[in-house]
Design a protein around this nucleic acid. Structure first.
Lengths: 340, 340
DNA sequence: ACGTTTGGCCCAAACGTTTGGGCAGCGGTC
DNA sequence: GACCGCTGCCCAAACGTTTGGGCCAAACGT
């Protein structure tokens, strides 16, 4: 644009100045260096290239998209960008997209079906080439519908149905924490399990619970409590646990922020972290290490997930067959789960 | 789109089915209800409208943009979305943009001039109608150039030069904290001042320092230390303060995350928050209240800033004269600055 | 009965690209 | 010297909209 500036320079403008046809200029500026057959004479190519960047030629993406019906745009839907986990994943997506010459379009759905529907429509109306969902619900009915409609997409962070997804191996992550708690001799453990529709929470909880069951210590239902993925949700859930008669000696929160909320609750209940109750989180956000009692957490490759998500989508758009990927997590032990 | 799906329905398709001309259909579907002169007969309008949404007509934005050279796209640049403050502001931007029928395009610049330049180019190449910068540097040379180029933009969060900006009244925020520390009787205070190129850090620090100077207690240079805006940066800066011989009794970090990092440092130095050293942050992020020692902080209307930013930009795009806005902050006192 | 207005619609150009077909001229082969 | 295959370029259509202008018929005024 440029209200005061010169009109943007077009292929036509370049062609006119050089006495060439617009199509010739188009081919020249288009041909990737490595391409096969030469498209014009050495000299012409040179002149066109020079003039193009002397004039600062920028192809008009709308014209291109109109003509080719490819927008090089990717729509990304996340529950909320103010969730550090998703924001970090999105940073990975953006980086990788830029490497592929793609631009991304991100929208918050708040994990709310109506908003998701509305935002998806908006994004689709923009004629994106494909989508990435970071907010999948395990019941994949929405996504099934979309897939049936022929929209190419991949999932990140959460899996759903058989749709291609890049996730952390959440089940394994849960097992790692369980293993650690078992090592410490904990038998009365609790889980702050996140939202029931998110595969992350489900799988992390399942891995954790399975490992304890294998150790002969099944976790009673009332010690597994759902929550939102933020500090406040973790606080509320932990209140639930600590108001009951059956105090846990260790708590696994499936998300660092929920864990921080749990720390708040523990404080409010006059208990001491580690000494009275061990706490572990998930994702190993940068905050974990800075907390007054540093937080044990499972490191998940968030940025990497974004990268892989784009890679997967790009392959999908090329028509390749793609399969889900599961990245491996790593337990980082800190003072919040020190040996009592 | 829709690999398997039907071709998207166009104006032409609707026109053909109804024996009308495409231009007629265009006008009908375009006319906002409240518009003046009728554009077609009642009956025709009805038939077109009905068929359009029966077929699920979606205007092709590329064609529209090509024709009108308006994209209804806004480019947003932020240092990093994984900074909760910016992510929250962006959520506000997105909400407000959606209300105006605009879509937003966000990119991370990492506060790095080269990346900023590159991302700006990319966004401009997409022919956005306007931009919002959340990463302005006080030396506005980059923005001056852009403005000279005729690109319409506004700033949020940080101000720079005379460019229209929506900010928090950071200076006032700094004063509020100073006032509070003075009330508590602190005389040896320090500031973790953020990055020297960000107006937020500068103004908050200035407000704080000015108030202390007015109270006859100028703050020595060595107790004002710069830092990045994240936990690690705050930690490092605080280490600086607490490794010296001249221990402060109160620390103002211009950002909650830096404050959290300071908490980590205080812990490492065997000091107790509040009892030994008071701490205050800025932004009142949701984490502040959950910390083991809840954090005193200045609440800034982040989401609101996003809203106002879009409003300002929209007015600017309409050609109106716009002026900067400064939203008022509020001090929230918590245990981290309890009376010793 | 005859000009003039109005309602309702169509025409065509334009926005900036991409791309399948051409069509000259030129160097070589038989 | 007829033929072939290049090289280097041009032509024109198409993508889906928007929009200034026009045209026809009906309604209106006197």
């Amino acid at each position: 644009m440029g209200a005061n500036g010169t009109r943007p320079v077009t292929l036509q403008a370049i062609a006119d100045r050089l006495g060439l046809h617009v199509s010739t200029v188009s081919r020249i500026l288009h041909a990737k260096p490595g391409q096969g057959g030469r498209v014009a004479s050495r000299g012409t190519i040179e002149r066109v290239r020079r003039l193009a960047d002397e004039l600062g030629y920028r192809p008009n993406p709308h014209a291109t998209s109109l003509r080719t019906s490819r927008s090089n745009l990717i729509g990304v839907l996340v529950p909320r960008l103010s969730d550090l986990v998703l924001a970090t994943i999105y940073e990975g997506i953006e980086e990788a997209a830029a490497e592929h010459g793609l631009s991304t379009f991100v929208a918050n759905t708040r994990d709310n079906p109506d908003t998701r529907r509305a935002r998806t429509d908006m994004v689709l109306a923009r004629r994106v080439d494909g989508m990435i969902f970071g907010d999948a619900h395990v019941d994949a009915v929405f996504l099934d519908g979309l897939a049936a409609g022929g929209v190419p997409f991949v999932l990140v962070n959460r899996r759903a149905g058989e749709h291609p997804a890049v996730t952390c191996d959440d089940y394994l992550g849960g097992r790692l924490v369980a293993e650690h708690f078992l090592d410490l001799g904990h038998t009365r453990v609790a889980v702050i399990a996140g939202e029931p529709h998110a595969s992350t929470g489900i799988d992390r909880t399942a891995g954790f619970a399975d490992r304890f069951r294998e150790a002969g210590i099944p976790i009673p239902e009332h010690r597994i409590v759902h929550s939102t993925f933020d500090a406040r949700g973790g606080h509320t859930a932990a209140d639930h646990l600590f108001n009951g008669p059956d105090l846990p000696s260790a708590v696994f929160a499936v998300n660092d922020f929920a864990a921080i909320g749990a720390l708040g609750s523990i404080r409010d209940h006059g208990l001491r972290v580690a000494a009275d109750v061990a706490v572990a989180g998930f994702n190993d956000t940068p905050l974990a290490v800075e907390l007054p009692v540093p937080l044990t957490s499972v490191r998940s490759p968030m940025r990497e997930m974004g990268h892989r998500g784009i890679d997967l989508l790009v392959r999908l758009l090329k028509g390749e067959q793609v399969t889900s990927e599961r990245l491996v997590p790593e337990l980082v032990v800190r003072a919040s789960s020190a040996r009592p």
